[in-house]
Nucleic acid binder design. Structure first.
Length: 1082
RNA sequence: GGGCCUAUAGCUCAGCUUGGUUAGAGCGCUUCCCUGAUAAGGAAGAGGUCGGUGGUUCAAGUCCACCUAGGCCCA
């Protein structure tokens, strides 16, 4: 025994470890199944770097994927980031969630391959390069050369890949970068081509018109993203125009009827094609005071036309459908048009409820007119002027035509009203030219055809949080519009459609097919522009030469195609795909609702008739400490690597997973993350360090025999049950993708472990009690395993120090271990409840101590408790309370009839409400008016009591129907909470007084030992002297106790004999003189 | 303009699904206690019209409606 204690455990050991983490670590313990020494202090970021090095050198990630081969797959898809910017803290957020569930599922026995990916194409990449080159439009790019431009784009994509991989590695995100997919790879592009051919062959890929914001000066369309930057407030004319009805039947009922139509863009009236009304709104036909017969929405009659009028009739919007009218201008030819159509988007809040339709210049207009097969006629040239052959306004810039046209309306008597209208209108962010919504030919995927299927697939998908499913995402599907797929750009997947002069189309699925069709081997050609544009093939219909159409596709299609394109399906690897479709889990932030989440589901449904994911986790955004969005502009960006090097990646991960709700916007800052370190990580670490220190001091090894759990002290049985419950509950929470709940369970358990179990059991650890060491060992093993997916670094460190060396069967990494099984027999709900009561009573005791002013070190004779369930507590549990509160005995406060306590009774509304409903307050009154002591005695004797409640009658009241509080009177310190109370007997006898002094002495010596840097196992000698009789008696009585508490091997009266250099100890409120010194010789 | 989310202590957030009469935790602040692992722990105090209004109910932070403010997405 003594030899073990001479081995220094050294709680003040250096902060850094021997850097080797592997099993061969501590040379002195080679081959010994003992714990490694765990210092109390730890530098978390430094420890994490050691763990990263170990994972690399032992290939732990690869091993975890390898060793699970053949097990049931759990499929995860990585949504590809665009790497042409620096990674930010929001990337860490998503990646933490993408990491924790694969790790958890791996522990649960699944095979979880994780392929990284990179999104390479798209307008943001092009814009970044344009900016670098100082370009201001497409003409610049064409002058520069598409090949050279695309080379720059390719290079730009690669630029920050290293920053992304470094950040991912640093945070412990396990994903396979070596097998990453790149959306610009030739194989990837050909998979996309294949899928587009599938969609084309189903008749769902078509060319049509698309209305998009367009800058007539720059000659280019603008993306939504660009659009958002360029809104400016302008004043436009707002005109109300008369459109005479020409429908004979309607005119017969309402002679001279005129549609009153509203628009803020008079120049589009030249192209008027139809008038839209809301099908379910009411429309009134009214005769005004000056004799006009007007048709307007009924709800707008008053504000538009005033009171002086007569309503001739009222019809629903749908009754007006197909009614013909005379258009305001007859400048261009628009055949088969000019009648009323129905459109849901028409509102009757402003305007007239009748909306002018020019399908070439409005997305809504185009969509509704398309439903009627109306023509799309566009008299405006790409440079923004009306075509020269248009009368009157030919050659005029579109905006400038407003003035002329309004004057013409006035002249022809069509103008009803003209006002100025201030609103925000999009302008080009480069040149401030007002944008024109402009119809251009475009390629569409007709997703509206599969809308019902999409809704069905969404029904079968689990969304976290669930509100997205029917909310944001469900709404989006319900309002589905066809997918405008093509872009008139350069850096993207080229649309694989070849067209001849006769407009026959040939869609190809691969370079191999192109080679076969063209008779030239082009399989080695870069499938990007401009190289692919040079390939021509004979038209499959008419044999004329076919060339590729000029467009590339929306890069969102690229990423949505990753389930198959990432493995080159079907050209490269059909087998892998079959095993990995659909995904069990995907996760991104909420902005992907209409991005990746949609494109994945749409493409999956289009090509394979089913969506590509089962469960989708949708994260809220990360904000700065003040709740603002992080942006370079404000300068509030948290740099992720720096954040992790400050606090450790584990702390950042824990924050993301468990602090606040993942699916809500959250504020992140240094304070919040530092909190995680102190509260959760260091508490866990210190418990580990504690276990290691005392196990090593006692030469204890986990393989040593220990009593069965059921034969151990009650607190051990309690902890074992809690640990078992922990693994079960965390499992359930993670199964439901609820990391917040899992995190709360874990941090609560760690708190219980450290601040209740260890606190209460310290003495047993000092003595090397195998039952205590064994119990804590197992509890830490379970905690470490359950926490491993959350904080992979610190748990790995603990695994290497405590569990790998002591169990020959242990996995070489915690991340190769299986999820801990709950031990069903250990769970005892009654014990958990009893312990909760014990802890509540202890809290009451502490509160009573605090109010009494008697410090805890001063023993007290007895305490009295009133609490329901007290009678069921075992003596063992009552003893826990006595020890913790330092009182001699603790007794129930029951059946008091001597006026020793005050008894108060309150109605328990929850119990009463269920039985009495509406009459609850009456019964509660009856309880309040009853005499509490006799009522309570009656209930306790008979089980219930009958009371008369006014307006109700006689009712039977049980103990559960009342909340009792009993509080002792004078001479007691009392605390009460929630119907439970505790009273401390404050009478201090001389004997108690001396016991208190003994405790003071112990405490003072311990403090001095600590201050002087003695090791916890050092033996000491104590010298003392006093003139006070009581103090001398105290030392006589308690010398043995004091000596054993402070590890004194000699206890000498007379300080004059003390050795040189011994330490003086001050004991407050005594005249005791005390010296101590290390060593056992006096 | 439309949809969704959010609003609880000075700050960060639980609690709301399943309504119950003293609304919790952490951080910060004040005072005290405890300490033989801990950067810890405990007690008390200050700090709340649970965003507002109305409704349902015996009873509303919790359910319903409307409103206000903020955020996100879309026009």
């Amino acid at each position: 025994m003594e030899s073990a204690r001479t081995r220094r455990a050294s709680p003040r050991a250096p902060e850094r470890y021997p850097s080797s983490l592997a099993g061969s670590g501590t040379p002195a313990l080679e081959g010994s199944p003992m714990y490694r020494a765990v210092p109390a202090q730890i530098d978390l970021p430094a420890m994490e770097h050691d763990v990263l090095a170990m994972w690399d050198s032992e290939g732990v990630f690869e091993a975890s994927v390898e060793q699970s081969k053949g097990r049931p797959p759990w499929v995860f898809y990585e949504g590809p980031p665009t790497a042409n910017g620096m990674p930010g803290t929001h990337h860490v957020e998503a990646r933490v969630f993408k990491d924790v569930f694969p790790r958890y599922r791996t522990m649960k026995g699944f095979h979880v391959p994780r392929q990284a990916g990179w999104d390479c194409h798209g307008l943001p990449v092009e814009l970044a390069v344009e900016k670098e080159l100082g370009f201001s439009g497409k003409q610049d790019i064409e002058r520069y050369g598409v090949a050279a431009f695309n080379d720059r784009c390719r290079e730009s994509v690669l630029r920050h890949v290293n920053e992304f991989t470094d950040m991912s590695r640093r945070m412990g995100y396990w994903v396979d970068f070596d097998r990453a997919y790149w959306t610009m790879d030739a194989d990837y592009i050909q998979s996309v081509w294949w899928s587009l051919k599938q969609i084309y062959s189903k008749g769902l890929l078509v060319q049509d018109h698309r209305v998009a914001p367009y800058c007539p000066r720059c000659g280019t369309g603008l993306s939504d993203h660009e659009l958002a930057q360029g809104y400016e407030t302008v004043v436009d004319p707002s005109v109300y125009v008369r459109f005479p009805v020409t429908d004979a039947a309607f005119l017969e009922r309402f002679p001279g009827a005129v549609l009153l139509v509203w628009t803020t863009t008079p120049w589009t009236l030249v192209s008027n094609t139809a008038v839209a009304v809301n099908p379910v709104a009411d429309y009134s036909i009214v005769r005004t005071g000056d004799g006009q017969t007007l048709v307007v929405a009924s709800s707008l009659v008053g504000q538009l036309l005033g009171e002086d009028l007569e309503e001739l009739g009222r019809v629903s919007g749908s009754a007006l459908e197909h009614m013909s009218y005379e258009r305001p201008f007859d400048l261009i030819d628009i055949p088969e048009a000019h009648y009323v159509i129905l459109a849901d988007y028409v509102t009757t809040d402003d305007g007239t409820g009748l909306v002018h339709q020019a399908p070439a210049f409005g997305a809504d207009d185009l969509a509704s007119c398309r439903g009627y097969g109306l023509p799309v006629v566009n008299p405006v040239l790409p440079n923004g002027t009306f075509a020269d052959d248009v009368p009157v306004v030919g050659g005029v810039f579109f905006k400038k035509a407003d003035e002329t046209l309004v004057a013409m309306l006035k002249e022809s008597g069509r103008l009803f009203k003209h006002v100025e209208y201030e609103h925000s209108y999009p302008h080009c962010w480069r040149c401030h030219t007002p944008l024109i919504y402009y119809a251009q030919p475009s390629w569409y995927i007709k997703t509206t055809v599969i809308k019902d299927q999409l809704i069905e697939q969404n029904e079968a998908t689990n969304w976290f949080p669930g509100t997205i499913k029917s909310g944001r995402f469900g709404d989006w599907l319900n309002n589905n519009v066809d997918w405008a797929l093509s872009r008139n750009r350069f850096w993207g997947t080229p649309l694989p459609i070849w067209r001849c002069s006769e407009n026959h189309l040939t869609v190809v699925e691969s370079l191999a097919e192109l080679s076969a069709l063209g008779g030239i081997d082009v399989t080695a050609t870069d499938p990007h522009r401009p190289y692919v544009d040079d390939i021509t093939i004979p038209c499959q219909t008419c044999e004329a030469t076919a060339t590729r159409v000029p467009e590339v596709i929306d890069c969102w299609y690229d990423s949505g195609a990753m389930p198959f394109a990432a493995v080159g399906y079907p050209h490269v690897d059909a087998g892998t795909f079959a095993d990995q479709y659909p995904a069990d889990f995907i996760c991104e932030a909420i902005d992907q609702t209409r991005g990746w989440f949609y494109t994945l589901m749409a493409i999956g449904t289009l090509v394979f008739d089913r969506t590509s994911y089962r469960n989708v986790l949708c994260l809220g955004h990360i904000l700065d400490e003040d709740g603002r969005k992080m942006s370079k502009h404000i300068g509030n960006v948290l740099e992720p690597i720096g954040l992790m090097n400050d606090h450790g990646a584990d702390a950042v991960r824990w924050f993301m997973l468990a602090s606040g709700s993942p699916w809500q916007a959250r504020r992140v800052g240094h304070a919040a993350i530092g909190d995680v370190v102190r509260k959760t990580l260091l508490t866990y670490w210190n418990t580990v360090s504690f276990q290691s220190m005392y196990a090593r001091l006692a030469d204890w090894e986990p393989s040593h025999p220990a009593p069965e759990v059921c034969d151990r002290p009650v607190i051990d049985r309690w902890l074992a049950a809690q640990a078992s419950e922990l693994t079960r509950e965390v499992d359930i929470a993670l199964e439901a993708f609820d990391t917040q709940r899992a995190g709360r369970l874990l941090s609560t358990f760690i708190d219980d472990l450290s601040n209740w179990y260890v606190r209460r059991s310290r003495r047993r650890f000092w003595d090397g009690d195998p039952a205590a060491l064994s119990t804590l060992h197992e509890a830490l093993r379970i905690t470490t395993l359950c926490m491993a997916p959350f904080t992979p670094f610190i748990t790995e460190r603990v695994w290497q120090d405590l569990f790998r060396p002591t169990d020959p069967g242990a996995a070489t990494s915690v991340h190769l271990a299986a999820w801990p099984e709950p031990t069903g027999d250990a769970v005892d709900p009654a014990l958990a409840e009893s312990m909760a009561l014990v802890r509540r009573v202890v809290e009451l005791g502490r509160a009573a101590r605090a109010t009494s002013g008697v410090r805890t070190r001063q023993p007290l004779g007895r305490a009295l408790v009133s609490a329901r369930g007290w009678g069921r507590l075992s003596d063992e549990l009552r003893a826990e309370i006595c020890e913790e509160l330092n009182v001699g005995v603790i007794e129930a406060l029951v059946d008091d009839t001597a006026g020793f306590v005050d008894t108060a009774i309150k109605a328990n509304f929850r119990a009463l409400g269920q039985r009495f409903g509406k009459q609850t307050p009456l019964v509660a009154d009856a309880i309040a008016n009853a005499e509490p002591v006799s009522l309570l005695l009656h209930i306790r004797r008979e089980g219930s009591v009958s009371l008369h409640a006014a307006g109700v009658g006689d009712v039977e009241i049980f103990e559960a129907d009342v909340i009792v509080s009993e509080t002792p009177r004078d001479g007691w310190a009392v605390a009460a909470e929630g119907g439970e109370s505790l009273a401390l007997d404050l009478h201090i006898t001389d004997e108690l007084q001396r016991a208190g002094t003994a405790r003071e002495i112990v405490r003072a010596i311990q403090e001095a030992r600590k201050q002087s840097g003695f090791d916890v196992s050092d033996r000491i000698t104590v010298w003392w002297a006093s003139d006070d009789a009581s103090t001398i008696l105290t030392l006589d009585e308690h010398a043995t106790l004091i000596a054993s508490e402070v590890l004194a091997t000699a206890f000498c009266e007379g300080i004059e004999h003390a050795q040189r250099g011994s330490v003086t100890v001050r004991v407050p409120e005594t005249d005791l003189q005390l010296l101590i010194a290390r060593g056992s010789d006096g």
